[in-house]
């Protein structure tokens, strides 16, 4: 059994993380740039129900992405929302795996962990593929999609495929790292998926801050301000009356 770590894998799994510093630096500048913009203020007394405030509205707004019942768009497209959840869980797991795999692969080397991760990555990759197809075939999506949008979803999908392959290498990598005893059930380390995965991850560290994928940097700000405004004006938290009937309309 081949349980050695080649210099290339070692470089990919341990040295490329230095690019995180680059990402952090760009994000620091980006957040500073956002904060240089002046926030608008509401001078007027609050409107609407007294149980809505700017603060409550902001909190509601920040978390309503986790409340699919709160928006007509997510109520109407339940499957689309489920896909969104799966895709983002896949991406988050892969980001976490890129760190854990490098330094403590033993933590994800159990067969249950590997299987769970592979299911998550496979599901997320399928969603990514569906999103890619939707983006290039649905007229409205074609109209609004930029090369960055198409490239981002395509690359993430490829990355998730390699995440799937990479997860399967966790036991062998843990053995190679001396964190796990070798056994007959653990195959040889396949270097290609590991190297490709890390190089795509590294590319992301440089590309993401300049692409639409960095939307998570804007998210807390944009949702906070929308929520604060609509909370002050009594709209958020939104009241739900007959939401099912609302969702059914025109569906």
């Amino acid at each position: 059994m081949h349980h050695e770590i080649s210099p290339l894998v070692e470089f990919a799994s341990e040295k490329l993380h230095i690019l995180l510093l680059f990402m952090a630096a760009v994000y620091t500048l980006k957040i500073r740039w956002i904060l240089l913009h002046t926030p608008g203020k509401d001078r007027q007394a609050p409107t609407g129900s007294p149980d809505t405030t700017g603060q409550r509205g902001a909190m509601y707004s920040l978390f309503n992405v986790a409340m699919p019942w709160a928006m007509p768009s997510t109520r109407k497209h339940k499957m689309f929302y489920a896909e969104f959840v799966v895709f983002h869980i896949g991406v988050a797991c892969s980001i976490a795996m890129s760190i854990v795999f490098s330094y403590a692969p033993v933590l994800i080397s159990g067969s249950a962990a590997v299987l769970t991760l592979q299911i998550v990555f496979a599901s997320a990759a399928v969603v990514g593929l569906l999103r890619f197809i939707r983006r290039v075939t649905v007229p409205v999506m074609r109209l609004i999609s930029t090369p960055d949008d198409i490239f981002s979803v395509a690359l993430l999908t490829v990355w998730l495929v390699f995440s799937f392959l990479m997860a399967g290498q966790a036991p062998a990598f843990a053995v190679a790292k001396g964190q796990l005893e070798a056994s007959s059930s653990i195959g040889a380390l396949q270097e290609t998926p590991v190297v490709v995965y890390y190089f795509i991850t590294s590319f992301f560290l440089m590309y993401v801050p300049f692409s639409k994928i960095s939307h998570y940097i804007y998210y807390p700000f944009s949702r906070w301000y929308l929520g604060r405004t609509l909370g002050h004006r009594g709209v958020y938290p939104m009241k739900q009356f007959g939401s099912e009937a609302n969702a059914d309309f025109l569906s």
Binding site: I34, H77, K212, Y219, L250
Partner: peptide, 23 residues
């Protein structure tokens, strides 16, 4: 105009997910 934070964020944050389309 885009020096206003809310305006700038609303312009920058769209991910072109298309969820607004049929609303």
């Amino acid at each position: 105009k885009c020096k206003n934070r809310q305006i700038m964020l609303s312009l920058a944050a769209c991910v072109h997910c298309g969820m607004c389309t049929d609303q």
